[in-house]
Amino acid sequence: MLSINKLKKTYTTRDGELEALANVSFDIFPQEFVSIVGPSGCGKTTLLKIIAGLVSKSGGNIDVDKDQFDPSREVGFVFQDSLLLHWRKVLENVLLPIEILKMNKGLYRQQALDLLDLVGLEGFENSYPNELSGGMQQRVSIARALIHDPKLVLMDEPFGALDAITRERMNLELLRIWTESKKTILFITHGINEAIFLSDRIIVLSARPSRMVNVLDINLPRPRVQEVRTSPDFGTYALEIYRSLELI
């Protein structure tokens, strides 16, 4: 549904040109879970923001299969921080994209409640974000990213700010949400294990300027359970990613 070709991004800074992305190419197919792994500052976020239209590209192409989806309305974005509007109750936060896209809010109310149910926040629709924990806030932001029924969901290290245990729980939840909602997910992380556990495919980026150093198909059985983390295949994938990132 999305084909990225030789995508480039250079920033002009005071010290001259700074190359953030160099020749990144990959395809995303419908209902796939694709992760991008790379060191901090390797331009992963930039890549995601280019796809979302928040940052302009310096070269290359993003080809969209227009029959399959409309990139101006059918993208959902989950940011590193939950970015909830603290003056709005949870339900109103989830409905924000509907308001921005000028769709009928009344028609989506039930959908929003169902999504809150899906992300495990049933009964919290009238709470203010301040009343929720960090993990719960990020769940709200996932529900918000899904409300306008996007085909492609972009996730920028959504669990980066959570503690390790909450993060593992959220990984399981995300897989469940992904299976039930049948979305295509492009997920950014610097957690190698997280990427293996979640993905169908992993794209490994090098440090700046980012080049693709590896693409791995993850053939672990689905539905994934925690035990899969201890399987020999899991270790083999991890080793390969370590090698690609020159960590060993």
Binding site: F77, L83, I100
Partner: peptide, 28 residues
């Protein structure tokens, strides 16, 4: 925060929407 503006921008929200939904309540 810039990120909060991105939240409206990726959905192609207008400047007016940014004012009404983000900037003004944020300034209360």
């Amino acid at each position: 925060e810039d990120d909060l503006l991105d939240l409206v921008r990726y959905l192609h929200g207008s400047k007016l929407q940014i004012f009404i939904k983000i900037r003004i309540p944020n300034s209360l």
